[in-house]
Design a protein around this nucleic acid. Structure first.
Lengths: 179, 179
DNA sequence: ACCTGAACACCGTTCAAGT
DNA sequence: ACCTGAACACCGTTCAAGT
């Protein structure tokens, strides 16, 4: 069998595992989704997953990275849109994995891999918020502090259930206070 | 054996279980603490806990209620202190169980008991924040929205590690923006 | 290199049996 | 009413063995 074929198969298998894991995590949450179920749905033996990922946390961050890679360009592409709209699309984009975010927070203290991912993600959102706030007219000295508040508001919106109107209201209210 | 004695013993046993569970949950987190460990440390058989509590989540909220019952009077007693100081002591008070808060968020979607407790707690902090903000001069129409922002900031402070200075800075910055 | 069946240690929870 | 020993179903993970 040609090496290329094998290579392709591996990529496909890995992608299938991650796709299956992603939808299962979103559907029933991280804890309730067993490695056995992921494996079965992906059509491999339960322990095969451990060939591709070190452990369950490793699979989780692989899934999360996929999600972020997919969401970021969308937000970055809206350069000309008003700030509140960009924040709202960021939330909408990450929201499908919103429940996963609370799982991430819960596992930060247990797993180094998860902690590293969380810190990087946090830094990224912070960076983005700072530059956005400065662009919106906030003085650079206060931008860092404002950005932190903004992040906590975003996290709060992700962690708790909200209607679309509530979300818009909270974001615009927060931005009005900050800018 | 007198009924009184038995009654007393039961109370003591329950208290011991909760004390042990509380310290273990704080030390190693909710997930990593097994019912078996709690039982062993409390000096009972593993399944005895199920006589007093329906399940592990039930034990968790019993522990959390204890913590809140203990913290609330302290915060309420500081009526004359400045708002920022009261918020900071609230955070310091709940902080010892801060890591548990992320566990609560993670389990809200799995357990009805946990969800109910979380909602009640949220409502309580919201109520408190609203009345505090009004007392501080915020117009009653905007107090609800401001309170929500305040709660998310508090949750953010609890969910992430901070130095004391950072905490003070964030709280005062947030209050300055809101009031 | 990739995949598997079988096993391991552990978990929350249940149940019949004891006092 | 209160407590237990023994068991159950399930979990994440490992390992020796196969291709």
């Amino acid at each position: 069998m040609a090496r290329n074929k094998r290579h392709l198969d591996q990529k496909v298998k890995k992608e299938e595992i991650e796709t299956v894991a992603m939808s299962l995590f979103k559907e029933q949450g991280y804890d309730k989704t067993s490695m056995a179920t992921v494996a079965k749905e992906a059509g491999v033996a339960a322990n095969t997953i451990y060939w591709y990922y070190e452990n369950k946390d490793d699979l989780l961050i692989a899934v999360l990275n996929r999600e972020v890679m997919q969401a970021m360009p969308l937000v970055l592409a809206m350069q000309s849109a008003p700030l509140s709209e960009r924040v709202l699309t960021l939330i909408a984009q990450v929201e499908s994995a919103g429940a996963l975010m609370t799982d991430v927070h819960a596992r930060v203290s247990h797993s180094d891999v998860v902690k590293q991912w969380h810190d990087r993600f946090h830094q990224m959102v912070e960076q983005l918020s700072i530059s956005e706030l400065i662009k919106a007219g906030v003085s650079p000295e206060h931008a860092a502090c404002d950005a932190r508040l903004m992040i906590y508001v975003i996290e709060g919106l992700l962690a708790h259930p909200h209607t679309m109107e509530e979300r818009v209201q909270v974001v615009e209210h927060a931005l009005a206070k900050l800018i």
